[in-house]
Every structure is written in structure tokens, then in C-alpha cells.
Design a protein around this nucleic acid. Sequence first.
DNA 1: GCAAGACATACTACTCAGTATGTTGTCAAT
DNA 2: ATTGACAACATACTGAGTAGTATGTCTTGC
Lengths: 206, 206
Amino acid sequence: MKDQMAPVMSASKSEILDAAAVVFMDLGVDVASIDDIARHLGSTKGRIYHHFASKGVLLSEVCLRAADFTYRKVALVIDPDAAPDKNLRNMILAHVPEVLRTLPYHKVIRQTYPGINQKSTTQVERDLHQRIHAERDRYEGLFRAELRRGMTDGIFRQQNETIALHGMLLLVNAPVIWYTPRADEPEGFALEIARQTADMAVRALS
Amino acid sequence: MKDQMAPVMSASKSEILDAAAVVFMDLGVDVASIDDIARHLGSTKGRIYHHFASKGVLLSEVCLRAADFTYRKVALVIDPDAAPDKNLRNMILAHVPEVLRTLPYHKVIRQTYPGINQKSTTQVERDLHQRIHAERDRYEGLFRAELRRGMTDGIFRQQNETIALHGMLLLVNAPVIWYTPRADEPEGFALEIARQTADMAVRALS
DNA sequence: GCAAGACATACTACTCAGTATGTTGTCAAT
DNA sequence: ATTGACAACATACTGAGTAGTATGTCTTGC
């Protein structure tokens, strides 16, 4: 992934992506304008267009960055020798806190999951959409693999894989919908969300 | 609900709502234009504006109709004397086929669940947004009530209600994301989706 | 014959993505 | 010390798309 992008992302580009994620989260990816994002940054859209060829490219880069956040965390905790339910639980315990930590990005992912809607696209954008799709398949593949192993081992019940996988993934990503960080939030609430979500996911499959 | 709306919706208005749901599903609620919907109908936007004061009103009416579809089906199957897990299962068995039958509407619901994004709104639109929110709370309340009864009765495990409820609801609505009707789809697939989803949901809570 | 509803057509004003041009600061070469 | 190139912005501009409105036409019902 890193070898496919510029070796080091500039601080300005990173700042723009963060601002874009927040504004896309607040206004919606289609309603938010480049000017809205520039205002959030306290700059003008000339700055944004210097780093990103189009709004569609900017949105795609936000999505790719979001995918990278969770992939990096989850891939690290998978142990091929561990039982599928244990792996799955650990994956979710890694996934959920990272999602909560980078919530704007994942709210953008949620909006664009069915696809990025544009009435016309450039080849660059189409290529980026394919990369996003590939990243998503790769990430979902981590969960699918554990689900399959679990069904083969008898740890998870035998059932339709598509229904089971997507049901479980939507459950796991539910906090993207309802969670909003609060100043008065109890200590360890993020961990409680992760634990309970992992617990529910494993039970749903068992 | 019905007493709050015109007693009988005209056939033309109903046709417009159906077309709007499909076009909103395909293009996204913000990318789709009133002209897009008119084209889908084989008419012009004059027709649409005759029945709906604005695009925002049209979108809101699509959402309200969607909410009505599932509420009507699910409210009918709730038995106050039944065990919470049985009720929940029956609710999901009623909910899922209706969602699949009216899929465009629910894809629109999914897009607008965090809120309908408009840079400016009329009072009529704000009032409609409040109705939508109230309808959603009322519907979710049906599920919340069974979850609470189940946790009180010990049928469902004691856990954070918000995490449990939203996780379960997202799992139940997962088919909105991945399901697409296919001509070669096996007989009874919709029922299989409903059964497996109900099963997973009850297990997730137990 | 007239009123009203249900459309179609023509028009307006605004927003927006993207582009062209200008400015400034930094850095390297001389 | 100077100069030129270039990156990183800001500003001004353009063209297209869009929501919504005004007006016209046709049909229907009384």
C-alpha cells in the first residue's frame, strides 16, 4: 500500500484529508463542496486542487486512507494457529477502537460503501474506485477467511456465508452509526463497545 | 400515520415516489436531480413540482413511506404475551421480507439515516425531518422494548442497551447493503435470509 | 363555458467543480 | 549576493448543472 503511494505524505496533504473527512462526515460527501473543505481549513480551494486533481480524487483518497487505518490494525492480530472464534474476537477488538479513533473517515466509508456516486468520472477516479473496491475485498477477506475456517471446524454453525458475513460486519460497524465521542463519556467506553460488539458477533455466528 | 396524510394518495403521486426511490437508490439522494427522476418517469419536473413542493419534501415523503412499509408489517406480529426472543424473531421474519420487497425505499432510508443533508431547509422540510425522526424512534422502540423485556426476563444477556440494540438492528438491515434481486435467485431465498438473520440476531443477544 | 388540476415548457438565479493566472516563499546554483 | 525555478498557495473567472418558478396547454368535471 505504502509502496503504491508517495513514500511520505506531506503534512499539508494529510491535513487536507483530515479536514475533508470531517466535512464529508458533517455535510455528506455529495453536499459538501470543495469550498466547504477549504473554509474548514482556513484556506482556499486552490490549495486543495494543488494536491488533489478533483473532488472525486480527494474523496477516493479519504476512503483509501480509512481502509488503511483498520487494515493495519487488524492484520497484525491474526494468528493462523489460533481458533477462528478467537481470531475473530481479536480482529474485532482491534477494529472497533480504530474505527472510533478515526470515526470521520469511517462515516465517509459508510456513505460511499455502495459506491461513489458521480455523474461522470475520469479514468484516474475509476482506477481509484477499483483500488478502493480491492482494498475493501481484501479487508473483508480477512473476516471471511475466519468465518469459513470456523464453519469448517464446526466452531461456527453451518449457514449461508454471504448472509452471515455481511450481517456480522454490519453489526461490527454499528458504532459508526450511533457513536459520537463525548467529553463525559465513561472511561473505557470504547473498550466496552469493542468487547460487547466482539461478543455479539461471535455469538451471532455460533 | 394514514390519518396524518391525505386519505388516499393519488396514483400519480405514488408513481413519482416509486420512481424517486429507484433513482435515489441508483444515483444517491444528493446526486440525483429532479430532472433525473422526471426522465425515469418519462415526464418533466413540472409534474413532480405539482405534487411535491421541493426535492427535500419529495425525499422526506420517500423516507416516510419506507418507514410505513416496515412498521405496518412488524407491528402486526408483536404479541405482548409472547416471549421476547420469540417476538423478536417474528418481528425480524416480518421485517426482512418487507425490506427486500421494497428495497429501493430502504436503500434511501440507509442513505438518510444519519440525517438528510441540505445546506438550507424550509420549515416544511424541517417538520418532515422531525416526523421521520419520530417514525424511526417509534419503530426502533418496538425492538428496544423486546430487547429490554428480554434482558429483564434473563432471556437476553444483560448488556449495554445501545450497543446491543444498534448492533442487532444493523445486522438485521444488512441485506439492504448486499442484497440485489436476481432472476436466477433460488426459490425461498428471501425467506432464508429472513430466517438466518433472525437466528443470528437472537443469538447475538442471548 | 368555466374553473381547476395535472401536466409541459421556458426561464432565472445560484451553486459548484474546475481552470487560469497571480503571488510568495524556499531552495539550489552561480 | 543574486537569480531563476518551482512548489504551494490565493484570487478571479468560466461553464455547466440544478432547484425552483412562471407561464402555457390540455383535460376533466360541474
